[in-house]
Computed example of a mutant assay.
Amino acid sequence: MHDFCFTIPYGLILVCGGAMGYASKGSIASLAGGVGTGFTLILAGYLSLQAFHKRKNSYFALILETATLTWVMGKRYMQTSKIMPAGVVAGIR
């Protein structure tokens, strides 16, 4: 499976989550965090998809995806000391 198969849908989920957080609570941080990181991942996935059509690799997209997800999950770990994304553990039980 290619990276854009995950980054584009995950970016869309982040954008929707940030917009829903803003709509329900008026949280500017939720809007900026969700929409900002979501659009970054969508952009990286799009660049990777375009490179795939040319039968090449997009190392810039790979670095952008890795840096974005490392920042998001690193920030979560620093705040909560949890590794799994929110909601994943609750869904497993």
Rank of each mutant, 00 (worst) to 15 (best):
M1C: 11
M1R: 14
H2A: 10
D3S: 15
D3Q: 15
C5K: 15
F6A: 14
T7M: 14
T7R: 09
T7W: 15
I8Y: 04
I8H: 04
P9M: 01
P9V: 01
G11T: 07
L14D: 01
G17N: 01
G17Y: 00
G17S: 01
G18Q: 00
A19S: 01
A19L: 03
M20F: 01
M20P: 00
G21Y: 00
A23G: 00
S24A: 03
K25Q: 11
K25E: 13
K25L: 10
G26Y: 11
G26Q: 10
S27P: 05
S27R: 02
S27L: 04
I28A: 13
I28S: 11
I28G: 06
I28P: 00
A29Y: 10
S30M: 08
S30K: 03
S30N: 08
L31Y: 14
L31Q: 09
L31E: 10
G34C: 02
G34W: 00
G34Y: 00
V35S: 03
V35A: 04
V35Y: 04
G36C: 07
T37D: 07
T37L: 12
T37G: 05
F39W: 13
T40D: 03
T40Q: 06
L41Y: 12
I42W: 09
I42M: 13
I42F: 09
L43W: 11
L43D: 06
L43V: 13
A44D: 03
Y46W: 14
L47G: 01
S48F: 05
S48C: 09
L49A: 11
Q50K: 15
A51P: 02
A51F: 02
A51R: 02
F52D: 14
H53E: 15
K54E: 10
K54H: 08
K54W: 05
K54P: 01
R55K: 13
R55D: 11
R55C: 07
N57T: 10
Y59D: 06
F60E: 03
F60C: 02
L62H: 10
L62I: 13
I63C: 09
I63K: 05
I63N: 06
E65P: 07
T66L: 13
T66W: 11
T66I: 13
T66C: 12
T68P: 06
T68H: 05
T68E: 04
L69Q: 12
L69I: 14
L69N: 12
T70W: 14
W71I: 14
W71K: 08
W71T: 12
W71S: 09
V72D: 03
V72Q: 06
M73V: 12
K75E: 15
R76V: 04
R76S: 07
M78F: 09
Q79M: 13
Q79T: 15
Q79S: 13
T80H: 06
T80L: 08
T80A: 06
T80C: 06
S81L: 10
K82C: 08
I83C: 05
I83F: 12
M84V: 09
A86K: 11
A86Y: 14
G87E: 03
G87Y: 03
V88I: 12
V88K: 04
A90H: 07
I92L: 10
I92N: 04
R93I: 06
